[in-house]
Write a protein that binds this DNA or RNA. Structure first.
Length: 451
RNA sequence: GUGAGUAUAGCUCAGUUGGUUAGAGCGCUGGAUUGUGAUUCCAGAGGUCGCCGGUUCAAAUCCGGUUAUUCACCCCA
């Protein structure tokens, strides 16, 4: 059979794993520094935990796990006869693959509320699955790196998360622009434009501003049933750049003013912080997820510094006033952000910013010429490993050329060649694969040299 | 869910208006070189041209269907 993997999934070569670990480690180290703790949740959740949390579109993209056993026996007869998949699902599937890390986290907080101290600061780096059509930079299996704090509505956390973004991308040497907005400001705009019920439609439309331009947004607003007068008002407010001007424009909306105040406070916390990257207020930032209620964030590669990089957002997040109430726990505000590790990988590759392969790789390969020297080499191997040197032995004393080629393919910096002469004298041939130089040294001296 | 492209050797791809035995580069195996890799030279192995059907004297090539995959839209990281 022809080997293959499911669509939207990927295998990783050793070098790719090293590079992905570099990204994860960089992110993790910053999370830990800011006082966040790791948690993990299962790849499968009960389907009831997941359904209805991501909207109609999200339900469609959920991977469902078929029940074990004779699942059709217990299937809903009516739905089965009518070939109604949607109605059938609950009777043949009770589990699904997690779609993101936030909803499982909400469930987790409710289940372990008595064991957690609030504010609870957690990070989580695990894969999630979506049955989306794959395309460039989008997969059906991908990692999310989430960092959230629940149990406090302090705006100092918004400021802290902005700093985490700044620090991580600073360490990765990617120049970024973090944009910040506030859902309350967007609600205020909808109020002032006289369409408070259509705020979601409005935000979905204006979220596309940088992609389709003001013309496209105007069109989409119209298509979503928003009247001309309201569209004109929305456009007028979107043109505002300064918070002070916005305050005046939203004077009629209590919610809108609150949003402006929140943003102002976040900036106040950040006064004096030395940014490595750019932070800017962007009134057009909307973000699709409906559960955000306060500040929202999105990070993009700074196209001024990296003009050739074409990539969507590489991070995003925001505040939610109430995520756990669907699981029966009220008054649990939170705020969190996520890093798009897969996209960060593509950006680092595009910019050639991955560090050189680290010393964790194989340091020396031993080569024996015949059966006897192969056994001798095996004993030398043990000494090297005992001295904590990453060492390996070619498994058979085959033709030297073949063994050398393997060493070359493995990118080993040194090889040790062992034949009759070496065994007689105890002086092994240590060859530097970089410059081809070779010298005879005792195993003790080799260990000193390679340490 | 909607639309477009692609499918030929292990990998990346050529393949003319349809015409004898389908090619290249890389990789692999052996040799030049029986104690030395990455460079060079020589030789060799390796293909049901995604699958099914149709048109034709003749199909990798044209047509229909199907599967896989890529890209874009919707949505999203």
């Amino acid at each position: 059979m022809k080997p293959s993997i499911p669509k939207g999934t990927r295998d990783f070569l050793p070098q790719q794993v090293n590079r992905r670990n570099y990204i994860f480690e960089t992110i993790r180290s910053v999370f830990v520094k800011y006082g966040y703790q790791a948690i993990e949740t299962p790849v499968m959740e009960n389907l009831s935990t997941l359904t209805g949390k991501y909207g109609e579109e999200g339900d469609r993209l959920l991977f469902k796990v078929l029940n074990n056993g004779d699942f059709l026996k217990k299937a809903n007869e009516e739905a089965l006869q009518e070939r109604n998949s949607t109605a059938l699902i609950s009777s043949i599937s009770k589990r699904g693959l997690r779609y993101d890390l936030t909803v499982p986290f909400a469930r987790y907080v409710v289940m372990y509320q008595n064991d957690l101290s609030f504010p609870f600061k957690r990070y989580q780096i695990q894969p999630v699955w979506r049955a989306d059509r794959p395309q460039k930079g989008r997969y059906q299996e991908f990692y999310q790196c989430d960092v959230d704090v629940v149990g406090s509505d302090s705006l100092s956390y918004e400021a802290e998360l902005v700093q985490i973004y700044d620090e991580v991308f600073g360490k990765l040497n990617i120049k970024t622009v973090t944009r910040i907005n506030n859902r309350k400001i967007l609600a205020g705009i909808a109020e002032v434009a006289g369409i408070p019920e259509q705020m979601i439609d409005m935000t979905v439309a204006i979220d596309k501003l940088d992609k389709v331009g003001i013309e496209g947004v105007r069109k989409e607003l119209g298509e979503r049933g928003i009247g001309e007068a309201a569209v004109a008002k929305i456009e007028e407010i979107l043109a505002i750049k300064e918070l002070a001007d916005l305050k005046a424009a939203l004077a009629a909306s209590e919610t809108g003013l609150l949003g402006v105040e929140e943003i102002t406070q976040v900036f106040a916390y950040l006064e004096g912080y030395e940014f490595k990257n750019t932070l800017q207020f962007d009134i057009t930032l909307a973000r699709g997820l409906n559960y955000y209620t306060g500040c929202i964030f999105e990070v993009n590669v700074d196209t001024a510094a990296h003009p050739n990089v074409k990539m969507g957002s590489i991070g995003g997040g925001g505040r939610y006033a109430d995520l756990t109430s669907v699981f029966g726990m009220k008054n649990m505000p939170g705020v969190g952000v996520s890093f798009g590790a897969e996209r960060v990988y593509d950006v680092l590759e595009e910019l050639d910013l991955f560090p050189a392969e680290d010393a964790a790789a194989l340091k020396v390969l031993l080569i024996g010429f015949d059966e006897e020297s192969h056994r001798y080499a095996f004993r030398c191997l043990n000494q090297l490993r005992a001295a904590n040197i990453n060492a390996d032995l070619y498994p058979d004393p085959v033709k030297l050329k073949k063994q050398m080629k393997y060493a070359n393919d493995r990118n080993v910096p040194y090889v040790i060649l062992i034949g009759d002469n070496e065994m007689a004298s105890g002086e092994l041939s240590l060859k530097n694969m970089g410059n081809g130089e070779q010298e005879k040294l005792s195993i003790a001296k080799i260990i000193d040299a390679l340490k």
